[in-house]
Computed example of a mutant assay.
Amino acid sequence: MLSFSFYLFQPLEQIEETFQLAARLGAKQLFTSLHVSKGQELEEQRKLDRIGQFASCYGIGVVADVTPTVLSRLSADADIAAVLRRWGIVGLRLDDGFSMKEAASLSKQVKVVLNASTMTEWECKELASYQADKSNVEAWHNFYPRPETGLGGETVLAQNQRLRRYGIEEIGAFIPGDAKKRGPLYEGLPTLEAHREADPVYAYIELVETYGIKKVFIGDLAVSDGVLRRMDWVRSGVIPIRYRPIVRVEWLSVVETVHTNRRDAARDVIRSAESRRSLVWPKEALQSIPAAPRRTGSITIDNERYGRYAGELQITLVDLPADDRVNVIGQVIEEDMPLLRYIHGGRRFCLIRC
C-alpha cells in the first residue's frame, strides 16, 4: 500500500487535497504528527475537528505520531478513543516516552504503531508480557530528515525479522517525495538512506519486494504527477520502465505496451513473452540496422536475420557485444535501471518513452 503524509502546519485546503489523492489511489490511512506547540492546543483541536470531517467524508483514517505530553495536552478526556475517532485518528504511532505497559494498554482501545527502527528484543518480550492486543499492534520505521542519518538495509531487515518473530506483521516505512519536500531541511524523508535521492517508484518497489514492507508512506508533502502515473502501473502489478529511443521510427509505439518476462527467465536478458506471440510488427521493424554494442539496459529487437526469433523484444541485464541479428532501439534511463532486477520470470512490465 502506498499512502501519504500531511502536517498540521499546512492549510486545510492542502490537507483535504491529500485526502482526495489518497482516496483516488485507494489508500486507507494517512500519516501525520501531533507535535503541537504549547499554547496552540485549542487552535489545533479545531483543526483536528475539520480533519476528522475529511476522514469521514473520504473514508480514510489517520495514524498520528504522538508523545505522552502532547496527547495529554490535547485531550484530558478519559475516553481517549472517542476523542481520537472524532479527529479521524485510527491509530497512534508512539514516540519516545511511552512504556511497553502503556502501549499494551492503549492497544486495547486504539491501533498502536510502535517504532520499528528502535524496538529491542526486551521491549518485544515486555509488550507480550502485558498481553497487548496483537491485532491492534503495528510497527513503522522512522524517517530521517538529516542527510547521512537514514538506516541501512541490514538494519531494516534485522528489525523486521525481530518484530515478526513476536507476531508483528504489519510493518511500515517512508520514502521521499520528488515534488515538494518538507522543511526545515528539504532533504527528503526516507527510512533508508539509500533512498534519499532515489526515484519514489523504485524506493517503493524496493521496500515492498526486498524488505517486505506492508505500508509505504511518502513522508514529504508531494510527489509529481509522473510518479503518480507510474504508481498506477505498479498498483496494477506492472513495473513501469522509462526509456529513451535510439531510433526514430513511426512504429516505436508498438513496443510501448505491457510485456511479460518469460517464466523461464534468462540470465542475461529480459525476454518479452508477447513480442513474438501477439505483437504485430511492421515489416520495417524487422529489417536489420547497423549493429551496436548492447550495454546494460539496452532495448533490442531480433531482426529478420535471426530466423524464428525475429521480433523478440529484450532488455539486456548485462553488457553484451554487438550482433548484426539484433537491433538496438532504445536505452532504459539511469534512474530506472535498478528496477530491472525486479522483473523476474512471469513479471509484467511496460515501456514508457521519455
Rank of each mutant, 00 (worst) to 15 (best):
Q53T: 12
F217I: 14
T118G: 01
L21A: 12
E206A: 09
V90F: 00
Q159P: 09
L74G: 04
R294Q: 12
D225M: 06
A82H: 07
P240T: 09
E334W: 07
L228M: 15
F143E: 01
I270C: 09
E41I: 13
Y306M: 04
A76W: 08
L313R: 06
L252G: 11
E121K: 14
A132L: 03
E17C: 08
I270V: 14
I15V: 15
E123S: 08
P190A: 04
L94Y: 11
R73G: 09
L313I: 15
W233I: 00
E256Q: 14
N115W: 03
K111P: 00
G61W: 05
V110Q: 06
T18D: 06
G307M: 13
R162L: 15
A291K: 15
F349N: 02
H259W: 13
W122I: 06
A104W: 05
S288W: 00
C354E: 14
I315Q: 03
K283L: 13
V326L: 04
M1V: 06
D302N: 09
S3L: 11
I80A: 04
R348L: 06
A23G: 04
P245V: 13
V227A: 13
D268S: 14
L228R: 09
A179E: 10
V36D: 04
L189S: 05
N115E: 07
